[in-house]
Amino acid sequence: MNHIGFFIIAASALVSAILVVRSQNLIRAVLWLGVTLLSTAAFYAMLESSFLAGVQVLVYVGGVVTLMIFGVMITRRHEGILVHAENHGSMKGFAVAGSLFAVVAFAIRATDGLDRERPFTPLTTKDLGRELLQTHVLAFEVVSFLLLAAIIGAIVIARKRDPVEKPAALPAPHATPSATKEAHP
């Protein structure tokens, strides 16, 4: 039963990931990416890592996909109707992706994470909280500085291009009694 579920999710993750890179339309590519990320969340749920599954949907599908949609929408385009993704250098991309895969696979093999004999104890949210606030409390604080840096970066991006200059501010309404007497011509 679990295997069937696994293969369905894996298939959806793979197919949608391929569609992300093959899609000619950037918005569709982003939406396919959402499917990939949802499949990943399903994996987490299958591994009884509920919190991670929820976070995956909340931050990645709800947040990052949104961010990418906005990224596409604020991009200056040339002409034409569809947003065409450039497909140059797919060989280079393949090479990069392949080497990344090799590195990750090696890292996984090197750790003892794949020990099938060890009893499986799912990590609850409380465990996660304890780990975060006791063992990794320094990393926890560093994350806040990372987020701070990201906020400041976002503001700098926003100020790069100002919107239309607002017309000169007129005297605040109701503040300047400038009524003028004028006879009917």
Binding site: E165, P167, A168, A169, L170, T176, S178, T180
Partner: peptide
């Protein structure tokens, strides 16, 4: 017509901007 000077200046500045 009488208008307060500041108002008049702002008004003309505004029209210079909005074409």
């Amino acid at each position: 017509m009488e208008m307060s000077e500041a108002h008049a200046v702002l008004a003309s500045a505004r029209r210079a901007r909005v074409d």
